[in-house]
């Protein structure tokens, strides 16, 4: 279901661009510092990890880059992803750029890096003697496309549809012997709103 909603949103976005893109003075920045800040929901329609519970997550992200030309910028990304049972901070490198030179334009963004665990590791005592739980992050890959609507010089609202591949691990050592390792790969769609300048 979510996939179909995403497809409709994506298709509408392209149509919107084609229909309403106006020939006017471009408000796009030509060169220099670029910052894209966004808040989004990360959704999935099936989760082997959170089966039967709410699996959705929130994402806050900031991409700060040097724009070489409107269609290409490179820089660093930093954010916080809040999954139901863990917090992950993705630290990435990436590129971004506008597709059109108009004031309403599609854009792309591709980020690759490492998601660091921010969850507090646990040391629990229970009936079985207790266990130490260690949350770990892992590889993150985050391509996305969206629409920028320029409202002033270099300033634009953004609507964005992305995909995030985030690896995460839990290591649990039970006092007394056995080890538990959970290997999770989050594969989420992200619907985001944000601001670019």
């Amino acid at each position: 279901m979510i996939k179909y909603i995403a497809l409709i949103a994506l298709f509408s976005l392209f149509i919107f661009c084609q229909l309403f893109a106006q020939e006017a003075k471009s408000l796009q920045k030509q060169k220099g510092f670029l910052s894209i800040n966004e808040i989004g929901v990360m959704v999935t329609n099936e989760s082997a990890l959170y089966a039967g519970t709410n699996a959705q997550a929130l994402s806050f992200h900031s991409f700060n880059a040097y724009q070489v030309v409107p269609s290409f910028a490179f820089g660093l990304g930093l954010g916080v992803d809040s999954y139901p049972d863990r917090l992950i901070m993705p630290l990435t490198v990436g590129i971004s750029g506008n597709i059109l030179k108009k004031n309403i334009t599609p854009f792309y963004k591709i980020l690759v890096g490492h998601g660091y665990n921010l969850s507090k590791n646990l040391s629990n005592n229970n009936n079985w003697g207790g266990a130490d739980i260690n949350f770990q992050g892992g590889l993150v890959v985050n391509p996305s496309v969206g629409l920028k609507v320029y409202i002033a010089d270099s300033k634009a609202f953004i609507l964005q549809l992305g995909y995030k591949h985030q690896e995460s691990f839990i290591e649990q050592t039970v006092r007394g012997g056995s080890n538990f390792r959970q290997e999770v790969t989050f594969q989420r769609l992200i619907f985001s709103l944000g601001f670019s300048f």
């Binding site: 497809l7 989760s47 496309v145 995909y163 080890n179 538990f180 959970q182 999770v184 989050f186 594969q187």
Partner: peptide
């Protein structure tokens, strides 16, 4: 862009594997 996005959508859904040693 459209094709790239479509291909990514196919990979949606959390994967999980528990290993007990």
């Amino acid at each position: 862009l459209f094709i790239i996005t479509l291909s990514l959508l196919d990979g949606c859904g959390d994967k999980c594997e528990n290993l007990i040693t």
